[in-house]
Design a binder for these strands. Sequence first.
DNA 1: CTCAAATGTTTACGGTATAAACATAACCGA
DNA 2: TCGGTTATGTTTATACCGTAAACATTTGAG
Lengths: 201, 201
Amino acid sequence: MNVRAYHHGDLRAALVSEGMALLVERAADAVSLREVARRAGVSATAVYRHFPDKEALMTALANEGLARLAAAQHAAFEAKGGGVDGFSATGAAYVRFALANPALFRMIFAHHSPGDLTAGDTSDDAMSFLLQNARALAPPGTDPRAFALQCWSLAHGLALLMLDGHVPVDDAAIDRIVDVRAMTGGHVQPGEGFDRPGTCA
Amino acid sequence: MNVRAYHHGDLRAALVSEGMALLVERAADAVSLREVARRAGVSATAVYRHFPDKEALMTALANEGLARLAAAQHAAFEAKGGGVDGFSATGAAYVRFALANPALFRMIFAHHSPGDLTAGDTSDDAMSFLLQNARALAPPGTDPRAFALQCWSLAHGLALLMLDGHVPVDDAAIDRIVDVRAMTGGHVQPGEGFDRPGTCA
DNA sequence: CTCAAATGTTTACGGTATAAACATAACCGA
DNA sequence: TCGGTTATGTTTATACCGTAAACATTTGAG
Protein backbone atom coordinates (compact mmCIF):
# COMPACT_ATOMS: atom_id res chain seq x y z
CA MET A 1 0.00 0.00 0.00
CA ASN A 2 2.25 2.74 -1.30
CA VAL A 3 0.82 6.03 -0.07
CA ARG A 4 3.54 8.28 -1.44
CA ALA A 5 3.61 10.43 -4.54
CA TYR A 6 0.35 10.98 -6.32
CA HIS A 7 -1.33 14.27 -6.92
CA HIS A 8 -0.72 15.71 -3.51
CA GLY A 9 2.19 13.69 -2.29
CA ASP A 10 0.73 12.24 0.86
CA LEU A 11 -2.65 13.76 1.47
CA ARG A 12 -3.63 11.26 4.10
CA ALA A 13 -0.71 12.20 6.34
CA ALA A 14 -1.31 15.88 5.64
CA LEU A 15 -4.95 15.59 6.69
CA VAL A 16 -3.98 13.88 9.93
CA SER A 17 -1.34 16.52 10.53
CA GLU A 18 -3.72 19.42 9.90
CA GLY A 19 -6.34 17.70 12.00
CA MET A 20 -3.95 17.41 14.92
CA ALA A 21 -3.04 21.06 14.52
CA LEU A 22 -6.72 22.05 14.56
CA LEU A 23 -7.30 20.00 17.71
CA VAL A 24 -4.81 22.24 19.46
CA GLU A 25 -6.93 25.31 18.72
CA ARG A 26 -10.49 23.98 18.71
CA ALA A 27 -12.64 21.38 20.42
CA ALA A 28 -13.19 18.24 18.39
CA ASP A 29 -16.80 19.04 17.55
CA ALA A 30 -15.69 22.40 16.18
CA VAL A 31 -13.29 20.76 13.74
CA SER A 32 -14.96 20.27 10.37
CA LEU A 33 -13.90 18.09 7.51
CA ARG A 34 -14.03 21.10 5.25
CA GLU A 35 -11.65 23.10 7.38
CA VAL A 36 -9.14 20.28 7.56
CA ALA A 37 -9.34 20.00 3.78
CA ARG A 38 -9.03 23.77 3.39
CA ARG A 39 -5.86 23.81 5.50
CA ALA A 40 -4.40 21.01 3.47
CA GLY A 41 -5.12 23.09 0.36
CA VAL A 42 -7.47 20.56 -1.12
CA SER A 43 -11.15 20.38 -1.99
CA ALA A 44 -13.61 19.38 0.73
CA THR A 45 -14.47 16.05 -0.78
CA ALA A 46 -10.90 14.98 -1.41
CA VAL A 47 -10.90 13.72 2.17
CA TYR A 48 -13.22 10.91 1.12
CA ARG A 49 -10.51 9.31 -0.99
CA HIS A 50 -8.63 8.52 2.22
CA PHE A 51 -11.33 8.25 4.87
CA PRO A 52 -14.81 6.80 4.39
CA ASP A 53 -16.30 9.54 6.55
CA LYS A 54 -15.49 12.15 9.15
CA GLU A 55 -15.57 9.56 11.91
CA ALA A 56 -12.73 7.67 10.25
CA LEU A 57 -10.51 10.76 10.16
CA MET A 58 -11.29 11.42 13.81
CA THR A 59 -10.35 7.84 14.63
CA ALA A 60 -7.03 8.31 12.89
CA LEU A 61 -6.44 11.43 14.99
CA ALA A 62 -7.39 9.50 18.11
CA ASN A 63 -4.88 6.78 17.30
CA GLU A 64 -2.13 9.32 16.80
CA GLY A 65 -3.10 10.91 20.12
CA LEU A 66 -3.11 7.59 21.92
CA ALA A 67 0.43 6.95 20.78
CA ARG A 68 1.53 10.32 22.13
CA LEU A 69 -0.22 9.71 25.44
CA ALA A 70 1.47 6.34 25.82
CA ALA A 71 4.82 7.91 25.02
CA ALA A 72 4.30 10.59 27.66
CA GLN A 73 3.45 7.95 30.24
CA HIS A 74 6.46 5.82 29.41
CA ALA A 75 8.72 8.84 29.63
CA ALA A 76 7.32 9.74 33.05
CA PHE A 77 7.77 6.17 34.23
CA GLU A 78 11.38 6.02 33.12
CA ALA A 79 12.16 9.44 34.56
CA LYS A 80 11.30 8.11 38.00
CA GLY A 81 13.21 4.91 37.47
CA GLY A 82 10.08 2.77 37.54
CA GLY A 83 8.64 1.22 40.68
CA VAL A 84 5.83 2.75 42.72
CA ASP A 85 6.98 6.28 42.05
CA GLY A 86 7.22 5.52 38.36
CA PHE A 87 3.73 4.11 38.29
CA SER A 88 2.30 7.09 40.13
CA ALA A 89 4.10 9.29 37.65
CA THR A 90 2.31 7.58 34.77
CA GLY A 91 -0.98 8.59 36.36
CA ALA A 92 0.12 12.17 36.79
CA ALA A 93 1.43 12.21 33.22
CA TYR A 94 -1.97 10.95 32.06
CA VAL A 95 -3.73 13.86 33.73
CA ARG A 96 -1.18 16.43 32.56
CA PHE A 97 -1.44 15.15 29.01
CA ALA A 98 -5.20 15.64 29.18
CA LEU A 99 -4.80 19.20 30.44
CA ALA A 100 -2.19 19.99 27.79
CA ASN A 101 -4.24 18.46 24.95
CA PRO A 102 -7.89 18.79 25.93
CA ALA A 103 -9.52 18.25 22.56
CA LEU A 104 -7.15 15.43 21.64
CA PHE A 105 -7.59 13.68 24.98
CA ARG A 106 -11.37 13.76 24.67
CA MET A 107 -11.12 12.50 21.12
CA ILE A 108 -9.01 9.54 22.17
CA PHE A 109 -11.64 8.24 24.54
CA ALA A 110 -14.65 9.15 22.47
CA HIS A 111 -13.51 6.51 19.99
CA HIS A 112 -13.55 2.89 20.92
CA SER A 113 -10.15 1.29 21.25
CA PRO A 114 -9.64 -2.40 20.68
CA GLY A 115 -8.27 -3.35 24.09
CA ASP A 116 -10.01 -3.58 27.40
CA LEU A 117 -9.14 -4.93 30.82
CA THR A 118 -10.43 -8.40 30.04
CA ALA A 119 -7.94 -8.90 27.26
CA GLY A 120 -4.65 -10.58 27.97
CA ASP A 121 -1.46 -8.61 28.32
CA THR A 122 -0.22 -9.64 24.90
CA SER A 123 -1.04 -6.35 23.21
CA ASP A 124 1.85 -3.95 23.28
CA ASP A 125 -0.21 -0.91 24.08
CA ALA A 126 -0.79 1.17 27.18
CA MET A 127 -3.22 -1.38 28.55
CA SER A 128 -0.62 -4.08 29.01
CA PHE A 129 1.72 -1.52 30.53
CA LEU A 130 -0.94 -0.65 33.09
CA LEU A 131 -1.69 -4.29 33.89
CA GLN A 132 1.98 -5.07 34.18
CA ASN A 133 2.47 -2.33 36.74
CA ALA A 134 -0.70 -3.28 38.57
CA ARG A 135 0.48 -6.87 38.86
CA ALA A 136 3.76 -5.71 40.36
CA LEU A 137 2.34 -3.15 42.74
CA ALA A 138 -1.11 -4.31 43.79
CA PRO A 139 -1.39 -4.89 47.55
CA PRO A 140 -1.16 -8.56 48.55
CA GLY A 141 -4.42 -10.40 48.07
CA THR A 142 -5.74 -7.76 45.70
CA ASP A 143 -6.88 -8.61 42.19
CA PRO A 144 -4.40 -6.80 39.93
CA ARG A 145 -7.08 -6.20 37.33
CA ALA A 146 -9.34 -4.49 39.83
CA PHE A 147 -6.41 -2.48 41.14
CA ALA A 148 -5.46 -1.43 37.64
CA LEU A 149 -9.01 -0.35 36.93
CA GLN A 150 -9.09 1.72 40.11
CA CYS A 151 -5.88 3.49 39.20
CA TRP A 152 -7.07 4.13 35.66
CA SER A 153 -10.46 5.37 36.80
CA LEU A 154 -8.86 7.69 39.33
CA ALA A 155 -6.58 9.32 36.77
CA HIS A 156 -9.25 9.36 34.06
CA GLY A 157 -11.84 10.89 36.33
CA LEU A 158 -9.51 13.55 37.67
CA ALA A 159 -8.41 14.45 34.17
CA LEU A 160 -11.96 14.95 32.96
CA LEU A 161 -13.19 16.75 36.05
CA MET A 162 -10.35 19.24 35.68
CA LEU A 163 -10.80 19.42 31.92
CA ASP A 164 -14.50 20.19 32.28
CA GLY A 165 -13.85 22.83 34.90
CA HIS A 166 -15.54 21.05 37.78
CA VAL A 167 -12.34 20.91 39.77
CA PRO A 168 -9.74 23.68 39.84
CA VAL A 169 -6.58 22.82 37.95
CA ASP A 170 -3.82 22.54 40.53
CA ASP A 171 -0.53 21.03 39.45
CA ALA A 172 0.47 19.91 42.93
CA ALA A 173 -2.96 18.36 43.48
CA ILE A 174 -2.46 16.09 40.49
CA ASP A 175 0.43 14.27 42.16
CA ARG A 176 -1.42 14.19 45.45
CA ILE A 177 -4.65 12.74 44.10
CA VAL A 178 -3.09 10.28 41.68
CA ASP A 179 -0.90 8.51 44.20
CA VAL A 180 -0.83 4.74 44.23
CA ARG A 181 -0.06 4.65 47.92
CA ALA A 182 -3.29 6.46 48.62
CA MET A 183 -5.09 3.49 47.12
CA THR A 184 -3.16 0.83 48.98
CA GLY A 185 -3.36 2.29 52.46
CA GLY A 186 0.39 2.78 52.49
CA HIS A 187 1.26 -0.74 51.40
CA VAL A 188 3.50 -1.40 48.44
CA GLN A 189 4.98 -4.60 47.15
CA PRO A 190 8.23 -5.61 48.87
CA GLY A 191 11.32 -4.47 47.06
CA GLU A 192 9.60 -1.51 45.47
CA GLY A 193 10.95 1.24 47.67
CA PHE A 194 10.34 1.65 51.36
CA ASP A 195 6.94 1.46 52.98
CA ARG A 196 5.64 4.84 54.05
CA PRO A 197 2.23 6.44 54.48
CA GLY A 198 0.57 7.74 51.33
CA THR A 199 1.46 11.32 50.58
CA CYS A 200 -2.17 12.09 49.98
CA ALA A 201 -3.25 14.13 52.98
CA MET B 1 -42.17 35.46 35.27
CA ASN B 2 -45.43 33.76 34.40
CA VAL B 3 -44.60 31.05 31.87
CA ARG B 4 -48.06 29.52 31.64
CA ALA B 5 -50.70 29.90 29.01
CA TYR B 6 -49.79 31.71 25.85
CA HIS B 7 -49.88 30.29 22.39
CA HIS B 8 -48.51 26.93 23.28
CA GLY B 9 -49.22 26.65 26.96
CA ASP B 10 -45.75 26.09 28.29
CA LEU B 11 -43.39 25.67 25.41
CA ARG B 12 -40.29 26.04 27.52
CA ALA B 13 -41.17 23.03 29.64
CA ALA B 14 -42.23 21.10 26.56
CA LEU B 15 -38.88 21.76 24.89
CA VAL B 16 -36.99 20.55 27.95
CA SER B 17 -39.21 17.51 28.12
CA GLU B 18 -38.75 16.63 24.46
CA GLY B 19 -35.05 17.29 24.79
CA MET B 20 -34.77 14.86 27.67
CA ALA B 21 -36.70 12.28 25.68
CA LEU B 22 -34.35 12.71 22.74
CA LEU B 23 -31.33 12.29 25.00
CA VAL B 24 -32.61 8.82 25.80
CA GLU B 25 -32.44 7.82 22.14
CA ARG B 26 -29.54 9.83 20.77
CA ALA B 27 -26.18 11.22 21.82
CA ALA B 28 -26.20 14.90 22.71
CA ASP B 29 -24.42 16.00 19.55
CA ALA B 30 -27.04 14.18 17.49
CA VAL B 31 -29.85 16.17 19.09
CA SER B 32 -30.70 19.20 16.97
CA LEU B 33 -32.68 22.26 17.91
CA ARG B 34 -34.88 21.68 14.92
CA GLU B 35 -35.76 18.16 15.97
CA VAL B 36 -36.65 19.23 19.49
CA ALA B 37 -38.89 21.94 18.02
CA ARG B 38 -40.41 19.47 15.57
CA ARG B 39 -41.30 17.09 18.39
CA ALA B 40 -42.86 19.90 20.35
CA GLY B 41 -44.95 20.68 17.28
CA VAL B 42 -43.51 24.12 16.83
CA SER B 43 -41.41 25.94 14.27
CA ALA B 44 -37.64 25.65 14.49
CA THR B 45 -37.07 29.24 15.52
CA ALA B 46 -39.72 29.27 18.24
CA VAL B 47 -37.07 27.84 20.53
CA TYR B 48 -35.30 31.20 20.50
CA ARG B 49 -38.18 32.81 22.40
CA HIS B 50 -37.20 30.71 25.42
CA PHE B 51 -33.49 30.03 24.97
CA PRO B 52 -30.92 32.44 23.53
CA ASP B 53 -29.23 29.61 21.65
CA LYS B 54 -28.86 25.85 21.51
CA GLU B 55 -26.29 25.89 24.27
CA ALA B 56 -28.85 27.39 26.64
CA LEU B 57 -31.33 24.61 25.98
CA MET B 58 -28.61 22.04 26.54
CA THR B 59 -27.72 23.71 29.82
CA ALA B 60 -31.34 23.47 30.91
CA LEU B 61 -31.28 19.76 30.08
CA ALA B 62 -28.03 19.39 32.02
CA ASN B 63 -29.55 21.04 35.07
CA GLU B 64 -32.54 18.74 34.95
CA GLY B 65 -30.17 15.79 34.63
CA LEU B 66 -28.04 16.95 37.53
CA ALA B 67 -31.10 17.07 39.76
CA ARG B 68 -31.98 13.50 38.80
CA LEU B 69 -28.42 12.32 39.43
CA ALA B 70 -28.40 13.91 42.86
CA ALA B 71 -31.76 12.34 43.65
CA ALA B 72 -30.47 8.90 42.64
CA GLN B 73 -27.43 9.32 44.88
CA HIS B 74 -29.47 10.44 47.86
CA ALA B 75 -31.84 7.51 47.41
CA ALA B 76 -28.92 5.07 47.33
CA PHE B 77 -27.41 6.68 50.42
CA GLU B 78 -30.64 6.43 52.38
CA ALA B 79 -31.29 2.88 51.22
CA LYS B 80 -28.07 1.81 52.93
CA GLY B 81 -28.84 3.83 56.06
CA GLY B 82 -25.94 6.21 55.49
CA GLY B 83 -22.43 5.63 56.86
CA VAL B 84 -19.60 4.11 54.86
CA ASP B 85 -21.87 1.74 53.02
CA GLY B 86 -24.20 4.60 52.19
CA PHE B 87 -21.34 6.67 50.85
CA SER B 88 -20.02 3.82 48.74
CA ALA B 89 -23.55 3.37 47.42
CA THR B 90 -23.61 6.98 46.24
CA GLY B 91 -20.56 6.21 44.13
CA ALA B 92 -22.12 3.11 42.66
CA ALA B 93 -25.35 5.01 42.01
CA TYR B 94 -23.30 7.66 40.21
CA VAL B 95 -21.84 5.07 37.86
CA ARG B 96 -25.16 3.29 37.32
CA PHE B 97 -26.87 6.57 36.54
CA ALA B 98 -24.24 7.24 33.90
CA LEU B 99 -24.75 3.82 32.34
CA ALA B 100 -28.52 4.21 32.38
CA ASN B 101 -28.43 7.73 30.93
CA PRO B 102 -25.30 7.96 28.78
CA ALA B 103 -26.14 11.04 26.74
CA LEU B 104 -27.61 12.88 29.70
CA PHE B 105 -24.65 12.07 31.94
CA ARG B 106 -22.18 13.36 29.37
CA MET B 107 -24.29 16.47 28.89
CA ILE B 108 -24.24 17.22 32.62
CA PHE B 109 -20.47 17.39 32.75
CA ALA B 110 -19.95 19.01 29.40
CA HIS B 111 -21.59 22.12 30.86
CA HIS B 112 -19.85 24.04 33.58
CA SER B 113 -21.52 23.87 36.94
CA PRO B 114 -21.15 26.67 39.44
CA GLY B 115 -19.65 24.69 42.32
CA ASP B 116 -16.20 23.20 42.70
CA LEU B 117 -14.24 21.64 45.50
CA THR B 118 -12.76 24.95 46.63
CA ALA B 119 -16.17 26.38 47.43
CA GLY B 120 -17.56 26.13 50.92
CA ASP B 121 -20.18 23.59 51.81
CA THR B 122 -22.93 26.17 51.89
CA SER B 123 -24.42 25.22 48.52
CA ASP B 124 -27.19 22.69 48.82
CA ASP B 125 -26.13 20.63 45.83
CA ALA B 126 -24.38 17.32 45.37
CA MET B 127 -21.02 18.91 46.05
CA SER B 128 -21.78 19.71 49.67
CA PHE B 129 -23.21 16.24 50.08
CA LEU B 130 -19.95 14.77 48.86
CA LEU B 131 -17.82 17.00 51.09
CA GLN B 132 -20.01 16.27 54.06
CA ASN B 133 -19.53 12.54 53.61
CA ALA B 134 -15.82 12.96 52.96
CA ARG B 135 -15.42 14.92 56.17
CA ALA B 136 -17.12 12.16 58.13
CA LEU B 137 -15.34 9.25 56.50
CA ALA B 138 -11.88 10.41 55.48
CA PRO B 139 -9.08 8.45 57.18
CA PRO B 140 -7.54 10.28 60.15
CA GLY B 141 -4.99 12.85 59.09
CA THR B 142 -6.35 12.94 55.56
CA ASP B 143 -7.53 16.15 53.96
CA PRO B 144 -11.27 15.62 53.46
CA ARG B 145 -11.23 17.69 50.28
CA ALA B 146 -8.52 15.54 48.75
CA PHE B 147 -10.36 12.41 49.84
CA ALA B 148 -13.59 13.70 48.34
CA LEU B 149 -11.84 14.45 45.09
CA GLN B 150 -10.37 10.96 44.98
CA CYS B 151 -13.76 9.39 45.49
CA TRP B 152 -15.37 11.59 42.88
CA SER B 153 -12.58 10.98 40.38
CA LEU B 154 -12.80 7.24 40.90
CA ALA B 155 -16.54 7.11 40.24
CA HIS B 156 -16.39 9.63 37.42
CA GLY B 157 -13.54 7.85 35.70
CA LEU B 158 -15.12 4.43 35.98
CA ALA B 159 -18.41 5.76 34.68
CA LEU B 160 -16.82 7.27 31.59
CA LEU B 161 -14.50 4.35 30.89
CA MET B 162 -17.49 2.02 30.92
CA LEU B 163 -19.62 4.48 28.99
CA ASP B 164 -16.99 4.80 26.29
CA GLY B 165 -16.57 1.05 26.03
CA HIS B 166 -13.00 0.93 27.28
CA VAL B 167 -13.95 -1.23 30.22
CA PRO B 168 -16.57 -3.98 30.10
CA VAL B 169 -19.77 -3.09 31.93
CA ASP B 170 -20.00 -5.40 34.91
CA ASP B 171 -22.56 -4.60 37.54
CA ALA B 172 -20.73 -6.39 40.33
CA ALA B 173 -17.50 -4.66 39.39
CA ILE B 174 -19.08 -1.28 39.99
CA ASP B 175 -19.53 -1.95 43.68
CA ARG B 176 -16.09 -3.51 43.90
CA ILE B 177 -14.23 -0.65 42.24
CA VAL B 178 -16.16 2.18 43.84
CA ASP B 179 -15.56 1.12 47.42
CA VAL B 180 -14.47 3.71 49.94
CA ARG B 181 -12.65 1.14 51.99
CA ALA B 182 -10.45 0.36 49.04
CA MET B 183 -9.24 3.96 49.22
CA THR B 184 -8.61 4.04 52.94
CA GLY B 185 -6.66 0.83 53.24
CA GLY B 186 -9.41 -0.65 55.36
CA HIS B 187 -9.65 2.26 57.76
CA VAL B 188 -12.93 3.99 58.42
CA GLN B 189 -13.87 6.64 60.94
CA PRO B 190 -14.74 5.23 64.38
CA GLY B 191 -18.41 4.58 64.87
CA GLU B 192 -19.03 4.07 61.17
CA GLY B 193 -19.28 0.29 61.11
CA PHE B 194 -16.53 -2.16 61.96
CA ASP B 195 -13.04 -2.04 60.55
CA ARG B 196 -12.43 -4.70 57.95
CA PRO B 197 -10.27 -5.06 54.85
CA GLY B 198 -11.55 -3.38 51.72
CA THR B 199 -13.77 -5.63 49.67
CA CYS B 200 -11.89 -4.68 46.55
CA ALA B 201 -9.87 -7.74 45.72
C1' DC C 1 -61.00 48.87 23.68
C1' DT C 2 -56.45 49.78 22.65
C1' DC C 3 -51.85 49.02 22.62
C1' DA C 4 -47.46 47.16 23.83
C1' DA C 5 -45.24 43.08 24.99
C1' DA C 6 -44.86 38.15 24.62
C1' DT C 7 -44.89 34.46 21.66
C1' DG C 8 -44.75 31.91 17.32
C1' DT C 9 -43.92 31.68 11.97
C1' DT C 10 -41.77 32.55 7.52
C1' DT C 11 -37.98 33.36 5.09
C1' DA C 12 -33.19 33.62 4.38
C1' DC C 13 -28.10 32.81 4.90
C1' DG C 14 -23.93 30.54 5.51
C1' DG C 15 -22.14 26.41 7.28
C1' DT C 16 -21.98 21.28 7.51
C1' DA C 17 -21.48 16.05 5.87
C1' DT C 18 -21.51 13.53 2.02
C1' DA C 19 -23.19 11.34 -2.51
C1' DA C 20 -22.53 11.36 -7.73
C1' DA C 21 -20.46 12.56 -11.79
C1' DC C 22 -16.50 14.10 -13.77
C1' DA C 23 -11.28 15.06 -14.58
C1' DT C 24 -6.55 13.95 -14.24
C1' DA C 25 -2.43 11.86 -13.09
C1' DA C 26 0.20 7.78 -12.06
C1' DC C 27 1.39 3.10 -12.55
C1' DC C 28 1.43 -1.38 -15.19
C1' DG C 29 1.39 -4.66 -18.75
C1' DA C 30 2.09 -5.04 -23.76
C1' DT D 1 6.50 3.64 -25.92
C1' DC D 2 1.71 3.11 -25.61
C1' DG D 3 -2.92 2.42 -23.77
C1' DG D 4 -5.87 1.43 -20.32
C1' DT D 5 -6.96 0.63 -15.45
C1' DT D 6 -6.89 2.57 -11.07
C1' DA D 7 -5.92 5.96 -7.62
C1' DT D 8 -6.61 10.41 -6.66
C1' DG D 9 -8.70 15.09 -6.65
C1' DT D 10 -12.64 18.46 -8.22
C1' DT D 11 -17.28 20.02 -9.28
C1' DT D 12 -21.75 19.94 -8.36
C1' DA D 13 -25.77 18.86 -5.80
C1' DT D 14 -28.69 17.52 -1.72
C1' DA D 15 -30.34 17.64 2.73
C1' DC D 16 -29.48 19.00 7.04
C1' DC D 17 -28.05 22.37 10.72
C1' DG D 18 -27.93 26.99 13.85
C1' DT D 19 -29.67 31.30 13.87
C1' DA D 20 -30.74 36.24 12.30
C1' DA D 21 -34.57 39.31 10.54
C1' DA D 22 -39.00 40.50 9.40
C1' DC D 23 -43.57 39.46 10.04
C1' DA D 24 -47.99 37.70 12.40
C1' DT D 25 -50.75 36.65 16.25
C1' DT D 26 -52.18 36.29 20.78
C1' DT D 27 -52.33 37.95 25.36
C1' DG D 28 -52.85 40.79 29.34
C1' DA D 29 -52.69 45.62 31.21
C1' DG D 30 -54.30 50.29 31.11
